[in-house]
Design a protein around this nucleic acid. Structure first.
Length: 518
RNA sequence: GGUGGGUUCGUAUAACGGUUAGUACUCGAGAUUUUCAUUCUCGCAAUAGGAGUUCGAUUCUCCUACCCACUACCA
């Protein structure tokens, strides 16, 4: 029986989405789209204490920027769907708004003997933990300790029922079976086994805020939303046995999703997972979009730093997955076609900022001159430069393969808009000698007097013939002109520059350098 | 500490028992170019360590080391 592929990305709105989170969403999306299935977004906001305003919107906007568009859970306006409809049959997609449905499932588990009520206070549990730790042991809330704690298993029925009525701080805990080996399969890691003796009786539901914990909400919602594969971060692997057991306890093992646990993204140097700090320190973003936190601290975003979304998606996809071929550049469509779970790497991937830049550079040169001009125009305006769009387009077409970001354009090509204000000292020392610039001025006169077609193609040949014909040193002469035009011995070909800026401006720059350096 | 996961050039990865261990990024050298950039060519550089299985191990098993995650009424 073929089951429709339905996967979900289930972020917790506790802050901006990390690039590792975007990768998890991307792999979910690629998997779903390849199978012709659904990609669903669900907001897991069952921890009211860690809620961060704006985080939810940030997450959705980030995915949208990447071209990761959910089929279900978020509407066309980028809002999380709250009311069920044909397209979004499982609404609401925010767990805080699904509050009412979890309690019955928690109770179902208690009635069936898979869970129980616990009345221990936070202080009591902390004390129990510390007592164990002080003798070098680990406290585990499970079969070995639960009968000494305060719960519906250890207390007389009349007593715990009274407590259930009086107190508002009890929880429902899963009754972890004793000495049972849970056998699990992971699409990436293969077979995994864990003995339940090392696991504890996890809290499933909290009376205090009438909310489930992650484990309960997650299993219930995945079941209700008919999720076929759960693709999530490696940090969830340790709780996979609990999730298996929960599916069994509910009697849902036949429709239990398959699981894939993705390795984490690691910091570029040293040990540990990639964090906000690394980005700040090494000057690369760890977030898709810029984010300002409550304290007013702003973190860089790939979007604001000038990365193209398709480049970002591409580099993210290649971090922990490979196509098995030597192809490195993939569009979203190609990724969807090529993606496969068994090519996903088991080990964590160290993020390499250099490679990230390389990707952007590769994408930049494939972008149209129109698109790049659109991006460059505002920068020019900010520099106080007024330029015709057609002119900018011409410039962009000539310089785009020299840049990694659009923001590099100004540094690379400012001389095509404004005259150099200074002359690079090293280059001056190297080239600005009388025997060179005296010849360069003659070449300048030749250019000024040139009456053929004043285009790169028109003047390039005659210019070269003129210099070679006179047997003048091409490099030295050209670099003196370049010094005058660019201010340094770098940049486009002289023919490109003069035809771009025009004879008049060319003459002015020659006069300027004469005045300054002769 | 306990449990689980992981380990191929600096980095991302290929080679799913037999290759001179391949590719890309970075870095270095050279060529091309009127300079710079581009482009091209070449180069540097790895199977964590130790046992075992095998005619043969990067690949399978075990041990050690190291790294990561989890160990909350957080997700």
């Amino acid at each position: 029986m073929e089951r429709r592929t339905r996967v979900r990305f289930a972020p917790s709105p506790t802050g901006p989405l990390h690039m590792g989170g975007v990768r998890t969403a991307l792999y979910n999306y690629l998997y779903a789209k390849q199978k012709g299935g659904d990609f669903i977004i669900r907001i897991e906001d069952t921890d009211s204490h860690r809620f961060v305003p704006g985080a939810e919107q940030y997450i959705i906007e980030s995915l949208r920027w990447c071209g990761i568009i959910p089929d279900e859970g978020v509407d066309e306006n980028g809002k999380v769907v709250e009311v069920a409809s044909e397209k979004h049959p499982h609404a609401p997609y925010r767990q805080s708004q699904r509050k009412s449905i979890y309690r019955q499932y928690a109770e179902q588990l208690v009635n069936a003997g898979f869970a129980y009520y616990a009345f221990d206070t936070a202080e009591e549990l902390t004390a129990a933990r510390e007592a164990k730790e002080s003798v070098g042991e680990t406290f585990i809330y499970n079969h070995s300790t639960r009968l000494n704690l305060r719960n519906s298993l250890s207390l007389p029925e009349t007593e715990w029922k009274a407590l259930l009525e009086q107190r508002t701080d009890w929880t429902v805990r899963f009754k972890m079976p004793e000495n049972t080996v849970v056998k699990m399969d992971d699409m990436i890691r293969g077979h995994v086994e864990v003995n339940t003796n090392t696991l504890d009786d996890k809290v499933l539901w909290k009376r205090a805020d009438e909310l489930p914990t992650y484990h309960l909400a997650n299993i219930v919602d995945d079941h209700l939303m008919e999720i076929s594969e759960v693709i999530r971060g490696e940090e969830w692997l340790p709780s996979l046995p609990l999730h298996y057991l929960l599916y069994q306890a509910f009697g849902w093992q036949d429709t239990m999703p398959r699981f894939a646990h993705l390795s984490l993204l690691l910091k570029p140097v040293g040990n540990g997972k990639l964090s906000k700090r690394d980005g700040d320190k090494m000057g690369f973003p760890v977030f898709p979009l810029q984010w300002t936190n409550a304290e007013g601290e702003t973190s860089h975003g790939y979007r604001e730093d000038g990365y193209f979304p398709d480049a970002f998606v591409n580099l993210l996809a290649m971090l922990g997955w490979n196509p098995g071929t030597e192809q490195e550049i993939f569009s979203m469509e190609e990724l969807i076609a090529a993606f496969s779970m068994d090519k996903v790497q088991k080990a964590g991937a160290k993020f390499n900022p250099d490679k990230a830049k390389w990707y952007n550079k590769e994408y930049l040169r494939t972008k149209s001159d129109d698109l790049l001009s659109d991006a460059f125009m505002p920068i020019l305006e900010a520099k106080g430069v007024k330029a015709e769009r057609d002119y900018v387009k011409k410039v962009v077409s000539l310089i785009k393969e020299r840049a990694t970001f659009v923001a590099d354009f100004w540094d690379i090509a400012s001389y095509l808009f404004v005259a150099p204000s200074e002359y690079n000292e090293k280059d001056v020392n190297k080239f600005w000698k009388e025997e060179n610039y005296s010849l360069a001025f003659k070449v300048a006169d030749f250019i000024l007097a040139f009456d053929g077609e004043f285009t790169k193609e028109g003047i390039e040949g005659p210019l070269e013939e003129y210099i070679r014909g006179n047997e003048w040193p091409m490099g030295k002469v050209m670099n003196c002109l370049r010094l005058a035009l660019v201010g340094a011995s770098s940049g486009l070909g002289i023919a490109d520059i003069v035809t771009l800026i025009g004879k008049e401006e060319f003459g002015r720059r020659i006069d300027a350098i004469k005045a300054r350096l002769c």
